[in-house]
Design a protein around this nucleic acid. Sequence first.
DNA 1: CTCGATGCAAAATTTTTGCAGTCCC
DNA 2: GGGACTGCAAAAATTTTGCATCGAG
Lengths: 156, 156
Amino acid sequence: MTTVDIHSSKENFRAHLADNGLRVTNQRLAIFDAAFLSEDHFTAEDLLERARKIDHTVSRATVYRTLPILTESGLVREVDIGKDYKFYYTPRAEEPTQAQVICTDCERIFETDAPFLEWYGQSVAKKLGLSVTSQRLQVSATCDRLKNDGVCENRR
Amino acid sequence: MTTVDIHSSKENFRAHLADNGLRVTNQRLAIFDAAFLSEDHFTAEDLLERARKIDHTVSRATVYRTLPILTESGLVREVDIGKDYKFYYTPRAEEPTQAQVICTDCERIFETDAPFLEWYGQSVAKKLGLSVTSQRLQVSATCDRLKNDGVCENRR
DNA sequence: CTCGATGCAAAATTTTTGCAGTCCC
DNA sequence: GGGACTGCAAAAATTTTGCATCGAG
């Protein structure tokens, strides 16, 4: 398993910018760093706040304009759990298809490998004459310990 | 397989309203009818338009206030495919856990049975100490015929 | 009659966009 | 120096909410 360190990852980001004729700006680098230093799932607003701690000139508009660049480069993944805003996270290793388990008590999102999904989606789509471009499995759940003991250990 | 006819379904709706101390209003009935007569997935705005053809006094606010009642009663299902607005549909038969295959060419949504999901979600959640409340699998795909022949037969 | 339900319009929320000014290459 | 990039604020787009009025039970 190849893990991802910030230096090689930042090089990938610079390369992605260069490959697409995009400029390397302080704001984009600050947003990249903020994303990479986030340990869990974050929202656009979280990212803005964290990026501003690194470069206080970063604006909300630039965060929203940079997020698609990060997701297209594969350095950040987008997760839509059906709320009216999206979550993002920075994968720490090469990951197969992922599923999310969402604890509706503590609102935490757990990423889980779900390699068999790959096969499953293909077979379902083929019957419809379609070719899979992506798929996602999301499981909503409640915390057993919260129900039993009144404490959700996942809550931070 | 038990299919669903509009009369028994509407009785279920009335019963659900009564059980929850909610009133049977013309607007709610019009919205119910509009949902039931829709043959495919629809948005809140679609539903407003169709409900107004039945009862022109129906307002947007009432549609948004009635949709949760319909979904809670199980008569309508909500489908969030990651757009900024939600889709809904009226299931025509008792359905096991469903997956959606979304054609990104024609934007159609295909519902597919995915009974094994039930088992899968349970096993993943159990490892995390969670109990599944719901799950969804969504497969995004492109139309093979559109790519090969330039025609997407799913487009209407 | 009473209180839940409704329509309207304003508000809320997240994301996008127009524009004038900035700074990367 | 030129054009891509940025910040700001206004705009978009969907959904929610406050309030006066209406109507189901």
